[in-house]
């Protein structure tokens, strides 16, 4: 995945079954953001892999004051990349089991 300066990791072990997982997001490289990141910490949130859209969560983070509007796309892409990886891993595991 592209280095967006925003890191997204699993905040819990993925059991491969739960549709909703906990993710943790933080800014790894502030220089890659256009606006200022309000927090110095990591933001933990839950994400439904089947129903939710990464860009919507990114927008909620903007509305909650963590990021500026100019960085919504970057944050959304960072979440989307991680979610894609989680889904790919799940698919691969299911294929091996099968």
């Amino acid at each position: 995945a592209e280095d967006t300066g925003v890191r997204v990791e699993l905040a819990e072990e993925d059991d491969g079954k739960k549709p909703t997982i906990a993710l943790k997001l933080w800014v790894e490289d502030h220089k890659k953001l256009k606006g200022k990141y309000k927090e110095s910490g990591a933001i933990e949130f839950t994400f439904d892999l089947e129903k939710e859209v990464p860009e919507v969560v990114a927008q909620e983070m903007v509305e909650s004051g963590f990021f500026q509007e100019s960085d919504a796309k970057t944050v959304g892409k960072s979440i989307r990349d991680r979610v894609a990886l989680i889904k790919w891993r799940r698919g691969r595991t299911a294929a091996i089991v099968a």
Binding site: K31, A42, E44, F45, E60
Partner: peptide, 27 residues
């Protein structure tokens, strides 16, 4: 370590906690 919480109007809860140690590039 300090954690705080922000709840968006749509209901999603954001929990802010310290960044995992050694995971910042520019600080």
């Amino acid at each position: 370590s300090a954690t705080s919480q922000v709840v968006h109007s749509a209901g999603r809860r954001f929990i802010v906690s310290p960044v995992p140690e050694g995971r910042l590039k520019d600080q």
